[in-house]
Design a protein around this nucleic acid. Sequence first.
DNA 1: CGCCGACTATTTGTATACGAACAAATCGCG
DNA 2: CGCGATTTGTTCGTATACAAATAGTCGGCG
Lengths: 149, 149
Amino acid sequence: MNKARHLTVATQQGDYALERQVGFLLREATQRHTAIFARLMPDEVTPTQWAALARLSELGPCSQNLLGRRTAMDAATIKGVVDRLIARGLAQARPDARDQRRRAIALTEAGDAFVGQALARARQITEETLQPLDAAERAQLLRLLAKIK
Amino acid sequence: MNKARHLTVATQQGDYALERQVGFLLREATQRHTAIFARLMPDEVTPTQWAALARLSELGPCSQNLLGRRTAMDAATIKGVVDRLIARGLAQARPDARDQRRRAIALTEAGDAFVGQALARARQITEETLQPLDAAERAQLLRLLAKIK
DNA sequence: CGCCGACTATTTGTATACGAACAAATCGCG
DNA sequence: CGCGATTTGTTCGTATACAAATAGTCGGCG
C-alpha cells in the first residue's frame, strides 16, 4: 500500500526534483558559505554582521534604517544586528540632532580597526566559497545571481 | 576627520565591494525567492517545510534524522520543522518498532493531498524566481550552484 | 555476553529573517 | 500654518539555522 502510494506520488511529481530547484540549491550554497565564513572570520562575526560593518566603513556614519537598506535587511533585522555590534564594542549609536527619529550609527575605533584587519579574511572566504569554479564560472555565477536578486 | 578616515578606509577596501561578494548575492537571491514563495505557496507553508513535505512524499515514511539529511537540515532544525508539520496535521510521527531511537515520520492523508496540490505552485515559484533568466542561463545557474553547494 | 563507539533525538542558547502593529517625529501640500 | 502621509525605530510573534550538551538505543567486536 505504501509502495502503491509512493509510485503514484512519484508519477505526480514527474520532473520535480527537489535537489534541482533553485530555492533548494540556494539554501545549500548559503549553508556551505556560512560554514566557511564561521571557520575563517575571526571573533565570531557573522556574515550579516560583517555586511553591516563593511557598509558602515564605506558609508561612514548613517542612520540605522539606511544602513539596513544598504545591506538588504529590514528594520527589525538591522536593529538586532546593530545592537549586537554595539554590545561587542564594534559600533556605536547616538541620536541625530537634525532628525530626532534617527539613530546615527558609526564604527568605534575598535570597529574600524577590525574592518581593516578582517578584509583579508573576507577575501579568503569569497575565494574559498568559489574555489570549485574557474574564473569564467565565477563571473557567470555572480552575474546570474545579480540578475535574480 | 571623518572624511579623511573615510578615504583611508575606502583605499584599504580596494576592490572589495560588498554587493559583488558571493555571500551577499546569495542572501539577496534567497530573499527574493523566499518572498515569491510566501506569495505563491498556499497555507503559509515555508520553503523549508515544503522541502520536508516533498522529500517525505518521494521517500515514503522515514526517520526524522534521515529526512533531515535528505533535506539539508541538521537534527535540531528538522525537529522543529517536523513538529510544525505535525501541528498543522500534514505529517505524523510514531516510534519505529525495530529501532526505538527512531521517530518514524510520514505524511498524513491531508499532507499527501497537499503535496499533490502544491506541486503546481512549487513549479510556478521556481519559474518566477528564474524569470529574469533565459533557458541557457537557468541551466548554468543551477549547474554553478550545485558546484559550490 | 558485555562493553564501547556510533547513531538518534531532544534541549538550550544565539543569530538571522520578516510581517504586523505601534509611537514618535518629520515632511509636504494645500 | 496645519494636518495627513511618510519615515524611523521598536516590539512581538513565528520560523529557520546550527553548535553543544545530554540521554537513550543499537551494533559490532573481543
